[in-house]
Write a protein that binds this DNA or RNA. Structure first.
Length: 424
RNA sequence: GUGACCGUAGCUCAAAGGUAGAGUCCCGGAUUGUGAUUCCGGUUGUUGUGGGUUCGAGUCCCAUCGGUCACCCCA
């Protein structure tokens, strides 16, 4: 395989069988977003590196080691393949002054790029659908987004997904908490591993969700974020929890859920599927009231989430809910002088009437054409040979039921077709 | 980036240092123009790649590429 070209590591081809699942999934997601009043926005895959460095944060794993960044030789600009969508979305909102007449609900979709070691549910090019509610202070819209997710799992037929919720307060509250947390971690410095020590001053909140038991023992005795929250932050969190409870959406408050991006404040949440192994988070999001100002815009509150297509579609595949692709209604078999032109006319008429028609291409014997007709899954084979051509007719052969074949006039075929495809 | 396991036909897998195989799929045929069943026949390939050990390597060793899972982190 060394001599032949192959796809970049961690960037996968989605072959037709799986792509069929993608199409069904994407239609459902898009439809749901639109029904809830979210409007599509499409941003470029490439942005100035500075956007992500500022928005996501210098001390995050994404910026430290996962971005596809390069200097464009033609322009001299520092560019990056987007590792996530929120930064681009907010940049676009600021650049086009989208909030000039009030808050906006937006959704986007597409590939994201992170240079990580691939494993199940984690790829270097992966795909997200994201929703962003820009200009809403919440917590009403916080609840709306979470309810939207819950509804989506329902419509997709997914079970076994749980919601984890937390609040990380305002920047000021978090700063005070952070200072005390650092003090606590320093007091137990000997028990920390290399990762925790490195993060101690750059991003101490990240130490909270370490899976290292020794570090967790230190974390267990760490100060509690809830104690640092002011009245407004507490009210926001309580308001959200009440709305979720009233809507019947279950959740677990996870005080160690801090999430990896710097721009979050107050509400953070993750939807987690236990059946996916180590990469179980299928959807994650949170509030980012500071991001607009951070990247040079007029301050505006906002919240959003992104969901992972590969992981969710993987869940759909596991639960045996893979959608069967629509088989053609008819497969057109043709052989003999002048039949190809008639076949195109016939197929065209049926397609114009809204039917799914595959017309044989590539030559081959009559037998092989019939084999293809069967393999296509079509209800009917429409046979057009020289005999039929002379009679301006077509032979209709049902392939999925026991009816014998018969002849139909070409002129009325499309009109009568709904009757013909019915099995008796 | 770290670690473990694994790379043989398009796919699923055999071959325990001695001639590379099976199933499936695909293609052709079984009296004129009729599928899926059955029967007959056919191609499956630089054993991921490059070195090394050996009389001899799919098999052992090294490197490399790729895959899988986990760590890290996240979608």
């Amino acid at each position: 395989m060394s001599a032949t070209l192959q796809a970049i590591r961690g960037m996968n081809d989605v072959l037709p069988e799986e792509a069929a699942r993608w199409l069904v999934f994407e239609r459902k997601v898009q439809d749901l977003f639109e029904r809830w009043g979210y409007r599509n926005i499409r941003m470029p895959l490439v942005e100035h590196t500075a956007l992500f460095r500022r928005a996501i944060g210098e001390a995050t794993d994404i910026v430290e080691k996962e971005m596809y960044s390069w200097r464009d030789e033609l322009s001299g600009e520092d560019l990056t393949l987007r590792p996530e969508g929120t930064a681009s979305c907010v940049r676009a909102a600021i650049e086009h002054n989208l909030l000039y007449d009030g808050p906006k609900r937006l959704w986007y979709a597409g590939p994201m790029y992170r240079h990580e070691r691939p494993q199940k549910g984690r790829y270097r090019q992966f795909h997200q659908y994201g929703a962003e509610a820009l200009g809403y202070p919440g917590p009403d819209v916080d609840a709306e987004l979470i309810l939207l997710c819950a509804r989506l799992w329902q419509e997709l037929g997914l079970e076994g997904i749980r919601l984890e919720l937390n609040t990380i307060g305002s920047p000021e509250e978090r700063a005070r908490y952070r200072a005390d947390l650092i003090r606590h971690l320093e007091a137990h410095y000997a028990a920390l591993d290399a990762d925790a020590r490195r993060r101690l001053h750059t991003n101490p909140l990240r130490v909270l969700d370490s899976k290292n038991p020794a570090v967790q023992a230190v974390v267990a005795g760490a100060p509690d974020m809830m104690q640092y929250l002011g009245e407004a932050s507490l009210a926001h969190f309580e308001g959200l929890k009440q709305l979720l409870a009233a809507a019947g959406v279950g959740y677990a408050v996870n005080p160690k859920l801090v999430r990896g991006l710097d721009y979050y404040n107050l509400t953070v949440f993750e939807w987690i599927a236990d059946r996916l192994g180590a990469q179980g988070t299928v959807c994650g999001g949170g509030r980012y009231d500071g991001l607009f100002a951070l990247i040079g815009g007029k301050p505006a509150p906002a919240i959003g989430f992104a969901l992972g297509c590969e992981r969710l579609i993987g869940l759909l595949a596991d639960s045996g809910r893979a959608p069967a692709p629509r088989p053609p209604d008819a497969y057109v078999v043709h052989q003999g002088d002048g039949t190809l032109e008639s076949a195109f006319a016939l197929s065209g008429a049926l397609r114009a009437a809204g039917f799914a028609v595959v017309q044989h291409a590539g030559g081959g014997s009559f037998k092989s054409q019939m084999r293809k007709a069967d393999a296509s899954g079509a209800r009917l084979a429409l046979i057009l040979g020289e005999d039929e051509l002379r009679a301006a007719a077509v032979t209709v052969k049902p392939l999925r039921d026991g009816r014998p074949q018969w002849r139909e006039p070409q002129a009325t075929l499309a009109q009568r077709f709904p009757e013909l495809i019915k099995a008796h």
